[in-house]
Structures are given as C-alpha cells and as structure tokens.
Simulated assay, not measured.
Amino acid sequence: MPVRFTPAFYWITSFAGWLIVGCQPPTGAPFSAGYDYFPLQPGQYRIYDVTEHRYALTSAPVTRTYQLREVTGLAYTDAAGQVAYQLHRYRRDSETAPWQPDSIWSARLVNNEAIRTENGRDFIKLMFPPGDLLTWNGNRRNGSEPDELMLRNSGQPYRVQDKEFGETVTVLAQTDSTLISKKKRIEVYARQVGLVYAEQTRLYFCTSSPDCIGKNQIDYGIQQVYSIRSFGID
C-alpha cells in the first residue's frame, strides 16, 4: 500500500531544511538575495585611493593621500562556530611604494547580516535582501550606542572615478549636524565587488568662546574618502 504524505509533513520537512541552512547563506544563493554585494571569496582584492583631511584649530588643515589594499583570506571557523574570512589590509603612500602590512580584520555572513569585525568590534554593514528604506542598527552586535543605518538607491548605477558600476546599494548613516559638530557617513557597495566608495566626516566646531560659537569654525576633526582604484582575484 503506498504511503501518503499529509500537507503537515511537507511543512515540517521544509521548516527543518530551513533550520539546517539558516545559519549561513547557502553557496550559490539566489541573485535576488543580494549576498554578492558583500562577496567573500578567497584571493579577492580591492585597492582604494584614500584622501584624508585632518583639522586642528591652532594649525592649517593637513591633507594626506595614500592607497589601501584589502585581500580576502581563506575561510576559517571562528570562536562562535561560524564561517569567517580574514581581511588582510596593506597600505602604501604612493603607487610606486612597496605595500606595508596595516591590519587584519575579518568578515562573515550570518543569516541576513553582513558583519565586518574591525579592531575587535563587530559592525553590521549590510542587511539582506537589500531594498530602499531598509533600516538597522549597525552597532547591534558590539554594544555601543545605536548607529541607525538606512539603505538607499538599491540596484542603481554608481560611478567612482573612471569606473561605472551597474548595480549598487548605498548605506547612509544618520547625519548629525549641530552647532557643535557635524557627522556624516556614506558607503556604496557594488555587486560582485563589495565596497567601492566610502565617505566619513567627523568635525567638531569651536565652542571655547562666544566669538566662535555657531560659526562652524572647526576645532578639530577628520574627513576621509575611499574610492576604489582596482579590484580582482589573485
């Protein structure tokens, strides 16, 4: 006599399968899920042109330019039993200078979160699937004050220097502009490439005397711009 399966059986087995694969995005995940905005492939590299402006009230602004290279290492299992990848970072002052080791960070994909560990702290950089007005707390995993992020321009083209990327997403941090400070942060991710542009501003205005309050006179601060120069797989 043939065995008949009830609808409940199919629901239970489907749910069990979801539990098995739910801890990590599956290999070859659907294109619509957007995991390829945050690719983690061993040997993949990105080189950025970086410009920094540092400000101090008692001296002229100092501008520095350099290049940063980031290479994805082999997969490993972290202390929480999750698959992660080391990010080997190198720096040089000019295109002709030799690369010097800078730092080692890491990254991983857990459920619908792209997590990047920078200097021992976890930051949720992206959420999946990406869509306009999607919001999340980028600091939820590190215990710091909430960092409210919003995703915009999902699937839109974006140009960085002489490179046109057909599909990108833009992550905006909450802009904070007051009489005493200005904070702004933007990150743009492209399919199959990852981060292609980033801009961060943290400026603090003079409040030491009535003559400078409210005049946007910079006491100290920094502005940084990362623009992708080249990328590929070694």
Rank of each mutant, 00 (worst) to 15 (best):
V171R: 06
I213R: 11
L133A: 14
I104L: 04
I222W: 08
A107Q: 01
P61N: 06
L179P: 00
R46M: 03
L149M: 14
V21W: 14
P7T: 10
T63M: 15
A8K: 10
S94T: 12
L203Y: 04
Q224V: 14
E164W: 03
G34P: 01
A29C: 11
W99G: 10
Y48G: 07
F9P: 08
V83H: 03
I12F: 14
D36L: 02
P61R: 05
E95Q: 09
L68N: 10
S227P: 00
R202W: 05
V193Q: 00
I20T: 10
C23S: 12
F9V: 14
R121S: 13
R64A: 13
P129E: 04
K215D: 07
R54S: 13
T51K: 07
Q41M: 10
V50M: 01
L203F: 02
R140S: 14
E113Y: 07
I218Q: 04
P30Y: 01
L151D: 00
N112M: 07
G166I: 04
A173W: 12
S177N: 12
A173V: 06
I20Y: 13
I124T: 09
S230H: 06
R64D: 13
Y226P: 02
I47G: 01
Y10H: 12
V196M: 01
L149Q: 10
V3C: 06
S177W: 14
K182T: 10
N139F: 06
H53A: 12
L203M: 08
H88F: 13
S94I: 07
